[in-house]
Simulated assay, not measured.
Amino acid sequence: MFAFSRPTARRRALAAAGTAAALALTLAACGSSGDSSMPGMDHGTKAPTSASAQATPSMGDMPGMDHMADGNGLADAKDGYRLTSPDTSLPAGKPSGYRFTIAGPDGKPVTGFALDQTKQMHFYAVRSDLTGFQHIHPAMAADGTWTADLAELQPGSWRMFASFTPDGGSGKGEDFVLSRTVTVPGTAASTPLPAAAESTDVDGYTVTVQGKPMAGMAQPLTVTVTKDGKPVTDLQPYLDTYAHLTAFHEGNAAFAHLHPTTKVNGDHGGPELSFHAELPTAGNWRLFLQFQTGGKLHTAALTLNVG
């Protein structure tokens, strides 16, 4: 079992000193929703013709089984903090709102959260076969109830992740990633995960990931962004960095989060972005890289194999 935590200022300092930054599970919300939604997202990549094995939902993906795993984002409670929600199902094929609350050790809703990458909460919705991905920044009501405004969801089992740092109480300054599952009713056709590939295309851009990560070892990853065969050098800051990279493990959708170590210098990011990654579990991971150009957010997806 492994643990992820979102990068804190301390971890960033360590990374700047040359220490590999640990993969962080981040689920959280930002003040508005819809930063990235990819319902029914096409898995197309520049992959070999052979397809990887079909993702099989684990017990942790089943509604009512949210306590199965701890420390990897697949549990709904940790250290007295609990993700609660009245929503066990959401409608298919139309936008919907997922309501949730973070309860503290005293059982009361938490209303004070520290900023991480300019946001108090990062929230992710991921379908069990990894074909659907949404990264949202929801809004919180005065009573501590968050609402994540989701784009349309396809039928199947979805896991909802919330990533946050309390700004007070016993968990002050500690990074949490908690999740619960919901069911979207209807005929759910499972799509096999695409085979591992070094590159993928999105919105006319080609994203290439170089590196051979090994389970349990800190390894560098380099992401290169090109367009029409030419290096892209106009990446804009997004959430205080040039790219937001998340990864989900095939089979149980365990979540990991990486930040680039590349220094931000205005709207001049690219073409290469450097990441330090420590992926404790071998197997296939589905990577979602988000980057911004010309005020538009792009989300590229590819499969990475960890030995």
Results as ranks from 00 to 15, higher is better:
A21Y: 01
R82T: 15
A75F: 02
A55T: 10
K46C: 07
M41R: 15
A28P: 00
A20R: 05
D66K: 06
A21P: 03
P63R: 01
D66Y: 11
D79T: 04
D61S: 14
A55K: 01
G34A: 14
M41L: 13
G34R: 14
D35Y: 10
P63D: 00
G31D: 15
A29V: 01
A75Q: 12
L23K: 00
S58F: 06
Q54L: 13
A22F: 10
T45S: 15
G64Y: 07
L27C: 08
G73V: 10
R82L: 11
G80K: 07
M59F: 08
A29F: 03
A29K: 03
A24Q: 10
S32L: 10
A53T: 11
D79W: 07
H67M: 13
G80T: 06
T88A: 13
G80L: 04
S85A: 15
P86M: 00
H67K: 15
A22K: 06
L74P: 01
M62W: 13
T26I: 10
H67R: 14
P48R: 02
P57C: 05
G40Y: 11
N72W: 03
L74M: 11
P63A: 01
D42K: 13
M65P: 02
A29I: 02
G31C: 08
T56L: 13
G44H: 07
D79P: 07
D66R: 12
K78G: 04
A53N: 04
S36V: 12
P57M: 09
G64V: 09
M59N: 08
M38F: 05
C30S: 11
S32Q: 08
P86H: 04
L74Y: 03
D79M: 07
S33M: 08
T49V: 10
